[in-house]
Amino acid sequence: MLISPALNAALREVRFDGDARLDTSGVRQAQAAAHTVPAADRMLHGPSERCAGTAGALGLRAEPEPALRGWDMGRWGGRRLAEVSGNEPEAVSAWLSDPSAAPHGGESLLELCARAGDWLDSTLRDAAGGGRVLAVVEPTVARAVLVHALDLPVPAFWRLDVPPLTLTELSGRSGRWNLRCGRPLSAGS
């Protein structure tokens, strides 16, 4: 089970995340949704401030997992998409159209999907006896996990939306995953 973190200023401003904390509104939204989080045998969170803050606001006793770090956007980290698009239109076009491109000096989309897939596969090996795993992860990591789990073509990554504070559930096993998409974690659930 994957939970996307609550909103923060970087998301509202359409920035390549960097490592921005939750703002007050994001903390309140996560706290209000805490009672809707499903039970799990193992709880993890990506190492970003936003993932850790969301896990904390949801009341989870989650461990940080380095393999669940957000997409490494290199020198674009923390910058607005509009700014980068205006200054480097060819680089942004290559990044959006070529899964192996990393004009920002960080991770390519192929590398992100491979890393997320390796984590999912290793989680299965580690939990061979069963058990539910819940992880608070950046939306890009959730999308990459889905590309791997469902054996989608890598460009499908760009067609998957993972809104803030939603639960994405995978069940089954490697090679045969079932997906339950984007159930909102909200006070009304």
Rank of each mutant, 00 (worst) to 15 (best):
G53W: 00
D72R: 10
P47F: 03
M43W: 03
C51W: 01
D72Q: 13
G74M: 14
R75V: 09
E65M: 09
P47N: 06
G106Q: 08
P103Q: 11
C51I: 06
E65K: 07
A102F: 05
T54I: 13
R79F: 02
W76K: 11
G86V: 07
L68H: 01
P64D: 06
R42D: 13
P47L: 09
D72P: 04
S85W: 06
L81Y: 10
G46L: 02
G77D: 03
P64Y: 08
L96P: 07
V84K: 05
R42E: 10
R75Y: 10
L68W: 00
A55E: 00
P89M: 10
T54F: 12
G70N: 03
P64R: 14
V92R: 06
L68V: 05
S97A: 15
A57Y: 00
M73D: 02
P99W: 01
R61Q: 14
A52E: 00
R79V: 02
E107T: 00
V92F: 10
G53R: 01
E49M: 04
A52S: 12
H45D: 10
W95R: 04
S93P: 08
G105F: 07
G59F: 10
E90T: 13
S93M: 15
H45T: 04
A55V: 01
L68T: 02
N87P: 04
D72N: 13
A82L: 10
G106F: 02
W76T: 04
